[in-house]
Write a protein that binds this DNA or RNA. Structure first.
Lengths: 146, 146
DNA sequence: TTACCTGCAAACAGTTTGCAGGCCG
DNA sequence: CGGCCTGCAAACTGTTTGCAGGTAA
């Protein structure tokens, strides 16, 4: 099921309404597999729809999260980004503290271990946040040169 | 080396100064192994020192982080807490989304796997954030009753 | 005595909310 | 047509900063 379909579903089931702005914002978040901040989304939407207010972006992003279509990620310690969740794959992140470059990572071993830990402590696992911070190869080279 | 000693060291080496407020705040953060928010620390300090301003707490907490004595944790998606780091043990967290209860967890398997992933992507690992969110046994029981 | 430190209040950034009008269904 | 949605601006929250006076070294 595509994200737009999911949105339509959710909107119907909740007695909400579809709007061009909502579709528009979702489309932007889907295009390119990039994690954006609200500010960034706002800037892009504004290009084709200068009327839009940032409040609408905030409201829509939150709605998408409620609908399970998007997800919040705290990339660095004070930047909130959003990504569209795909049905089949879960991933975590490895981020360069210097240049912000990031890699999406997956690890069955870690996922399994997480489940074990949750079970051992009698927790029903709902979600997790796993971000590795480091310095990428490029940045290490650049810093040496200086 | 105790946290207070570490603070003294750091302060001397950086040309800073010790103050009763700084010691006071550190003492509170050390007492009980709890992760507190700035607001909570502020409330506690105020009891014995009503004069103190919250800005001082923010400044001190930041200083302690710079000194490597404390560490920021983003417990839930918009609450920042701080914990005193102990020299010997690293741990991550498992948090109940319902009641806020948390368990500190350690896993060699995950730590090793993280290093591997970082190495594979040519990152020099500096830090990581690993938090599991779930519902604890008590809360699951309570919810059933309702 | 010289920085540094503190409390206060003002400034800020990110996010939320109330309102009056617009639009979907 | 009713209720949700939007843009705008004002409100709010968590955090930072500038300033004038206080204090450690």
């Amino acid at each position: 099921m595509s994200a737009i379909e999911k949105l339509n579903d959710y909107v119907k089931n909740s007695g909400l309404k579809i709007s061009s702005q909502r579709n528009h914002i979702l489309k932007i978040m889907e295009s390119e597999h990039i994690h954006r901040t609200v500010e960034e989304i706002y800037d892009i939407v504004k290009k084709s729809n200068p009327e839009i207010g940032i409040a609408t972006v905030y409201r829509t992003v939150k709605l998408l999260c409620d609908a399970g279509i998007a997800k919040e990620i705290h990339m660095s310690h004070d930047v909130t980004r959003y990504e569209i969740v795909s049905d089949n794959s879960h991933h975590d992140h490895l981020i360069c503290q210097n240049c912000g470059k990031f890699v999406e990572i997956e690890s069955d071993i870690i996922e399994k271990e997480q489940s074990k830990i949750a079970a051992k402590n009698d927790f029903e696992l709902k979600d997790h946040c796993h971000i590795l911070y480091g310095i990428c190869g490029d940045c290490r080279k650049k810093n040496k040169k200086k």
